[in-house]
């Protein structure tokens, strides 16, 4: 059976390329738009980008560490 076009490896590779392109564009767009932040930190270049990437990494890793402690088999309460 033919795989759905969306899940063929070729499409996925293409999607990655498109996505990286879009990411680049959003950061570069900031060159054309003046940002007025309330604080200094939010006026740094590509703030959303690095802050989003960084905090997400922290949250995922934090969850992973916490998960090591509080995860139980899903039949725990049965």
């Amino acid at each position: 059976m033919e795989k759905h076009w969306l899940v063929r490896p070729k499409t996925i590779r293409l999607l990655w390329i498109v996505m990286l392109g879009v990411l680049a564009v959003t950061v570069l767009l900031q060159l054309g738009i003046e940002i007025h932040g309330e604080f200094h930190i939010d006026e740094t270049f590509g703030f959303g980008a690095w802050y989003g990437l960084g905090t997400c990494a922290v949250m995922v890793i934090g969850a992973k560490i916490l998960g090591a402690v509080i995860k139980r088999k899903d039949t725990y309460y049965d």
Partner: peptide, 21 residues
């Protein structure tokens, strides 16, 4: 513009983080 771009950066890069992690 600033708002939209800032939000897009934030969300799309969290998306990147998701797939990387």
């Amino acid at each position: 513009g600033a708002h939209v771009v800032g939000q897009l950066q934030l969300l799309l890069f969290s998306g990147l983080a998701f797939f990387l992690l």
